[in-house]
C-alpha cells in the first residue's frame, strides 16, 4: 500500500475561503446593491451617501477600517481559493507556482488594503 501522504496545510486556506464565502453570502448582495446601484442612481439611499466627507469619516473610524479590510481581504481569499480549485477542475493542476500566484494575489490585495486603510489615518 502507498504510504499516507503528509498533513495538508489546506485548513488555513479553507478557513479563509469559508469565512469569505459566508461573508459574501450574508453581506455581498447588499454591498453590491449599495455601492454599485443604489448610491450611483440615488435610489433608496441618497446619492451623496458615499460623499468624500462620509467615506473619510467611515474609513478613519477603527470599526469602518475593520469592516472595509475584512470585506476586501476575505472576498479575495474566498475567490482565489475557489478559482484555484476551478483551474484544477479544468485540468490546470495546482503546482507550487499556481498556488503562489493565486494565494499570493489574495495576500497582495490584503496588504494593499491594510496599507491604504492605515495611510488614511485615524
Amino acid at each position: 500500500m502507498k504510504p499516507i501522504p503528509r498533513r495538508s496545510n489546506a485548513p488555513v486556506f479553507w478557513g479563509l475561503f469559508g469565512a469569505g464565502g459566508m461573508l459574501a453570502a450574508l453581506f455581498g448582495p447588499v454591498l453590491v446593491f449599495m455601492t454599485g446601484i443604489a448610491v450611483p442612481l440615488g435610489f433608496i439611499l441618497p446619492s451623496d451617501a458615499m460623499s468624500w466627507a462620509h467615506m473619510q469619516a467611515f474609513a478613519q473610524h477603527w470599526a469602518g477600517k475593520g469592516l472595509l479590510f475584512v470585506v476586501v481581504a476575505l472576498f479575495m481569499w474566498h475567490a482565489m481559493h475557489r478559482i484555484l480549485h476551478s483551474l484544477h477542475d479544468l485540468g490546470v493542476h495546482a503546482g507550487a507556482a499556481l498556488k503562489i500566484a493565486c494565494y499570493g494575489l489574495a495576500l497582495l490585495v490584503s496588504i494593499v488594503a491594510a496599507w491604504v486603510l492605515l495611510a488614511l489615518g485615524f
Binding site: 499516507i4 501522504p5 503528509r6 498533513r7 495538508s8 489546506a10 480549485h85
Partner: peptide, 14 residues
C-alpha cells in the same frame, strides 16, 4: 485523522 487530514484527505473535496 492521519488519513483524513493528509494531502490525500478531505480537503480535495470541493
Amino acid at each position: 485523522m492521519e488519513v483524513a487530514g493528509s494531502e490525500a484527505g478531505v480537503f480535495n473535496c470541493t
